[in-house]
């Protein structure tokens, strides 16, 4: 019931978000058709505006947009005039998703075990080294990590390509560049969660009733300690799946992330709104899934 209500609630949220994006991008100065060279006659600008219905009142444009959206049509791109927004998303999103999912798995795969281990070894040398490395990963931004990786693995060692998106081998460096920061964040979250849990009474109880240390840690402590990571993962996944401007630029990857930034700079109205709606849907749905997974992980959580 609770989730049904949440699902229904998605619709007004999306309407509000899409309207805000729709109106705000039109309020910004400049139009999609402004170029360094003025068109040869004002008639041309008028024809362009009419073509994309920009000469109509805003509410009418929005109604038209909603009608198209209901059919799953995001409309034509106003910057890339041979493509529709659907086309661009269809081509770019899978690439971004592959990269994002890779980075997500990389971050989880490194972050969770490392955080878990360093919490168990809390206060020992391993803990300090790992904490320091995690901090380093958080502090160095992708636009430094990316070129560093390229320098070492593409130029010095000649192992991996410096960019483009052609084979699984091309994915390794971008995935690391994108995932490293999140691996650091997750390992810290995991370590904090684990440290807190290890002091709670039910762990003492588990130990007291003679459960082995491994079973205590994995079966009892882990399930609760991972909760902060899980709640962080929803928005993180939405973020990663829709691409990364920085990493896609550095490696020349044909994803959707660059469009998130460029479309608003280009005033590509339909593209901006389309991407905002897409991102919102992903974010809302993944958040819902995260809440759902709480019930599976934490027996204390129940939704009415």
């Amino acid at each position: 019931m609770y989730f049904l209500r949440r699902l229904i609630f998605l619709i007004p949220t999306l309407l509000i978000i899409s309207f805000l994006a729709f109106a705000l991008v039109r309020v910004a100065p400049g139009s999609p058709f402004d170029k360094e060279r003025k068109p040869a006659s004002p008639e041309i600008e008028r024809a362009l505006k009419a073509k994309y219905h920009l000469d109509e009142p805003l509410w009418k444009q929005y109604m038209r947009y909603l009608a198209d959206l209901a059919r799953g049509d995001f409309g034509p791109s106003m910057k890339y005039r041979n493509h529709t927004v659907n086309d661009i998303i269809r081509q770019g999103l899978p690439v971004s998703m592959t990269l994002g999912l890779g980075a997500f798995l990389f971050a989880q795969g490194i972050g969770i075990p490392v955080g878990f281990y360093s919490a168990v070894r809390r206060g020992r040398r391993v803990d300090y080294i790992v904490s320091f490395l995690a901090l380093l990963a958080i502090c160095i931004p992708a636009f430094v990590v990316g070129p560093l990786l390229i320098m070492v693995f593409a130029f010095k060692m000649n192992w991996l390509p410096a960019g483009l998106w052609e084979s699984p081998k091309h994915m390794i460096l971008p995935v690391i560049a994108l995932g490293l920061y999140f691996a650091g964040r997750i390992s810290r979250l995991m370590r904090e969660g684990m440290s807190g849990i290890l002091h709670s009474e039910f762990i003492t109880t588990a130990r007291a009733k003679g459960l082995s240390e491994t079973a205590t840690l994995v079966k009892h402590a882990f399930r609760l300690a991972v909760l902060p990571v899980v709640s962080y993962s929803g928005p993180l996944l939405a973020d990663l799946l829709t691409g990364s401007f920085v990493v896609e630029s550095i490696f020349g990857i044909p994803g959707i992330g660059v469009f998130l930034v460029n479309s608003s700079l280009n005033r590509d109205y339909s593209m901006v709104v389309g991407l905002v709606v897409l991102y919102a849907v992903l974010l809302l749905v993944l958040n819902l899934l995260v809440d759902l997974s709480y019930t599976l992980l934490d027996p204390r959580v129940k939704y009415e």
């Binding site: 068109p39 040869a40 041309i44 024809a47 073509k51």
Partner: peptide
């Protein structure tokens, strides 16, 4: 004009 060619000049 319907083609909206910037370079029609």
């Amino acid at each position: 004009p319907a083609t909206a060619c910037d370079y029609s000049g």
